[in-house]
Amino acid sequence: MNTAPTAAETLEQEALVATPVPARMPAEWRDFFALTKPKVMRLVVFTALCGLLAAPGSIHPVIGFTAILCITLAAGGAGALNMWWEADIDAKMKRTQGRPLPQGKVQPTDARDFGLLLSGMSVMVMGLAVHWLAAGFLAFSIFFYVVIYTMWLKPRTPQNIVIGGAAGAFPPLIGWIAVTGEITWMPVLLFAIIFMWTPPHFWALALWAKPDYAAANLPMMPNVAGETSTRRQSLAYSVLLLPLSVTPWLIGGTGAIYGISALVLSSIFLALTVPVGLRSSVEGDKMKPEKKLFAFSILYLFVLFGALVVDRMVLA
């Protein structure tokens, strides 16, 4: 049996060898930076820094800087892993369609490896340079955000952001532990404040992005329990946030600068949540009260934690 290739087959094989495989355009460094969710990271860095500065005791500036850097890298790593896992969901939502993975700018495996590298490095350096208890909490916060929230809760329950909000509440606690090396009531209260703040903050966004979440088939509270229930629950969390935010002052953990700031800010927060909590949207609604609440909720956290640091500086 003649197995020698024909002239046509030889030409075809040569053509296959000679034709270069089209090289994939490498992702830009900006695309990897975008994977870290820089906008979310700003709030994480700020609250972590405030936790670190408000904690009793002192920390060497280099070690303090390292602690904040590790928390930042961990948040970035967790963000990249979240984008890797949710690439198909992101492609369906207007708000997230422009992200590097749905755009095809970064390969999914590259995003995953980048996230794992940042997460692993941040925990290792935190442990070796700062404190292993802080590193333990950092590792747990990454696990909580990526596995508990992103992979498990988000696609399954409308309570996803309530429980998942805990992941975002860890930074000030870790910043505090980096200084003190132990857990006391104060960092737990800071954790609880962000935990209680997350539902009204996030549901304000979810209320006007309802069609987006429906398109992505995500069981967000407005899509599952309905708008009215979401609005009432937002109001309930805001009512609880008011006394909770003042508690650090009441137990003597802070001075009056923080206490009065918390009282004023939480009262405004509640005043803005009341119209959101009691109204119903109509066809073609611009959702102004919800957008106003969402914008103020970000300012709220910045000013509240800023006041905590100023209070500590004045007391010190």
Partner: peptide
Amino acid sequence: EEQEFKRRRKSR
């Protein structure tokens, strides 16, 4: 494309 490829690689 090759120029763009090299530019991206260089900046990275």
